[in-house]
């Protein structure tokens, strides 16, 4: 395994790290995985997960580029007037072009995590060089079963009652108010602009028809359970995709939104590695 600095984009201002396998295990023609920032954090991924993933994948023959979108992490801003998502899409396209020009890569797997799904999705639906997509904690919509589970579970939820009583007390005791956010917060990961459910179903159907393999990963623990709470939710959101062989869905019931626990993270990385080996042998 070897890692090298990968600068590209306008003025070479975008910074990434390309992890490549030893030639003895490299898989000629295999797609290169591309990942960028999760939220505002820099390119190493939550708890360094992208670094671990890149090194794990290199051991079985895959290359992976992790990079900072322009203006984030170690990358400089673009000197243009594009909007945030447009800039991100340009950055990803520049990454693919650099990998093609310098390493001869022709096929790519887009990896998006949380808000990072936005640019990964936008590029994946348009660009024929994208042959695979991994969407972790991406777009999600509540379903009737989601609501049923949520409200039926609530009376037994320690966190709900903790939050409820804190909020109630805070109405009368000002000193309690600073504690409310911590106890009752809902992480606003699903508040950004979403494509509609119908549009997403069309996008996924079109990608599958184009031959794009997709892995959707959701978690059901803290920070996610307000949006996902059962294993079959994806197909209830998108019933027309049921049975589509190019789509796989994994639900980690106990993992929190950023897979804080090492055990959860190890399972996630193993799932991705296995999916790559199955779909891009």
């Amino acid at each position: 395994m070897r890692e090298k600095i990968y600068t590209f984009g306008p003025r070479g201002s975008i910074v990434g790290i390309l992890t490549e396998p030893d030639p003895a295990v490299a898989r000629p023609g295999a797609p290169v995985i591309i990942a960028s920032n999760v939220g505002l954090n820099h390119r190493i991924g939550p708890y360094r997960s992208y670094v671990c993933l890149a090194r794990d994948l290199a051991k079985v023959g895959y290359s992976m580029l992790r990079f900072d979108l322009s203006g984030m992490g170690d990358s400089e801003s673009r000197l243009d007037n594009h909007r945030e998502l447009e800039r991100a899409i340009l950055d990803v396209q520049d990454a693919m072009q650099a990998l093609t020009d310098r390493s001869g890569a022709r096929k790519f797997v887009q990896l998006g995590f949380c808000s990072g799904v936005d640019s990964a999705h936008a590029v994946a639906i348009e660009d024929p060089r994208v042959v695979g997509a991994i969407f972790i904690e991406g777009y999600s919509f509540p379903t009737p079963q989601f609501y049923a589970r949520r409200y039926l579970k609530r009376p037994w939820s320690r966190r709900f009652w903790h939050s409820y009583w804190l909020r109630t007390l805070a109405r009368y005791i000002p000193a309690m108010r600073p504690h409310i956010r911590e106890a009752g917060e809902v992480v606003e990961i699903y508040s950004r602009s979403y494509p509609t459910r119908d549009l997403l179903a069309q996008n996924y159907t079109a990608m599958a028809a184009r031959g794009v393999s997709m892995l959707f990963v959701y978690s059901g623990g803290y920070g996610s359970d307000h949006a996902n709470n059962y294993a079959g939710q994806f197909y209830d959101m998108f019933p027309t995709l049921r049975g589509e062989p190019r789509i796989e869905v994994e639900y980690f019931e106990k993992a929190d939104h950023v897979f804080t626990a090492l055990a959860d993270r190890e399972k996630l990385l193993a799932r991705i590695k296995g999916w790559m080996q199955t779909h891009f042998p």
Binding site: P46, Y47, R48, S157, R158, R159, H162, E182, A183, G221, Y222, D225, E253, K254, D256, V258, T260, A261, L262, A263, D264, R265
Partner: peptide, 25 residues
């Protein structure tokens, strides 16, 4: 400990001492 308290499913709840600290070994 605060994070564990509010996480409904701490994966190593039953262990005496977590093998990690805030997501890192």
């Amino acid at each position: 400990a605060r994070q564990l308290e509010r996480n409904l499913h701490p994966p190593w709840q039953a262990m005496e001492r977590p093998p990690e600290l805030l997501g890192f070994p």
